[in-house]
Design a protein around this nucleic acid. Sequence first.
RNA 1: CGGGGUAUGGCGCAGUCUGGUAGCGCACCUGCUUUGGGAGCAGGGGGUCGCAAGUUCGAAUCUUGCUGCCCCGACCA
Length: 452
Amino acid sequence: MCRVLSSEHEDSMRLSRYFLPILKEAPKEAEIVSHRLMLRAGMMRQQAAGIYSWLPLGYKVLMKIEQIVREEQNRSGAIELMMPTIQSADLWRESGRYDAYGKEMLRITDRHEREMLFGPTNEEMITDIFRTYVRSYRDLPLNLYHIQWKFRDEVRPRFGVMRGREFLMKDAYSFDVDQAAAEKAYAKMFVAYLRTYKRLGLTAIPMRADTGPIGGNLSHEFIILASTGESAVFCDKELLDTPVPGEDVDFDADMKPIVESFTNKYAATEEMHDEAAFNALPEDRRVSARGIEVGHIFYFGTKYSEPMGAKVAMPDGTEKPVHMGSYGVGVSRLIGALIEANHDDAGIIWPESVAPFGAGIINLRPGDAAVDAACDKAYAELSKAGLDPLYDDTDARPGAKFASMDLIGLPWQIIVGPKGLADGVVELKYRRTGEKQLVSLDAAIARVTEKA
RNA sequence: CGGGGUAUGGCGCAGUCUGGUAGCGCACCUGCUUUGGGAGCAGGGGGUCGCAAGUUCGAAUCUUGCUGCCCCGACCA
């Protein structure tokens, strides 16, 4: 009894007590599938163009993605801190970007008529922190990151969270003594990104990106393939199966072979596409698809350290500006990308690593003693196993319950009704394939919890 | 920022051309019947028709101005 009660105070939830405002029809402004499904599944609500409230279901997914991103950043040796959303214009004047940035920057004036801004990124601020405290080459390398809300006043926000104005982003910044060291930091992040997307259930392909005036080849966009992607991409089919390093990867070792196992194969977005090089691939290895950018890493040398005076003392006593790189992951955008890559006509199909609840339990006849008891048992067992189940104990009709559960896309459903129970079985449904089987309650619980 | 749409209850929509007391489906509340893939019947609540001026005896409807939102393009995580 106490066990059941205490588990209820964790993440598991009875639908009758939850806040899950499901819509049968999607608001007309939502055009693409991820946007429609997020609104219908009650994950978010638009408050202004490109600005959203995160409702409980959406917020849970957002936090799960954020946590995976965080764990992989930490594993690679990056260190988390937190910078504010509001910044002073003065910092941006130092780098020259205050005037250069244009109208995408949301400029704010405070009560003392001081010029402020809602940060679209944090290179200036992190450089300021660095120059304040770090003076010696001995303190390098250093990689600091935070996961914070950003604002870019896009001319035309669209596609829901895929192209919002306010968005959650992980941005990391590396500091090194020279370009060779910075390249090592870059390679570490490259590998951390491969691992992050893998854990999210996505196949992200690193593609060379435009490095602008700095040149070199140290900029990659991480792209996932989805038919609704925003840009055309071209790559070698072998990249889809190139192995991603496991949890035991040693980040102190040389990352270059891993990076090269990806960068030695053709991959480019439309802007960087080289038709001749692509056509040199055997025909059956040419993948021409659409993609969604979910991360971007680049090395930019002394672009900020130089004008902002972020220098360290070198062994010979001279001072040199540090070499920097920055590494972004669009955390909120990833929700949209995940849905674009994982859905069917009935709704969302969450990868297990980010599903808002690990499994759904549907009670087809609340009030029926046997059905209630079976559901209570499933709920307690799944909760105990840390599966974080959502228990639909409402008195809605079966059809509505099935439709809602499919819509929100939990990996597993255990469906309990009086008819099946009379034969000693419940229905176990795997959302991704739609595969259903009639098994005993214990077997269903065992099957769902075996991976947890 | 150029071009095009659109704005009527929480969501989807009709009504606007031709001015005359705001309607439908879903959702919500009550009751009854139902209950294994988005139930049926009956009753009920909820909207100053985006905002502001104007025309008119009378404006959701006509005129003017403004604003929000959406789509296409250029731009970006």
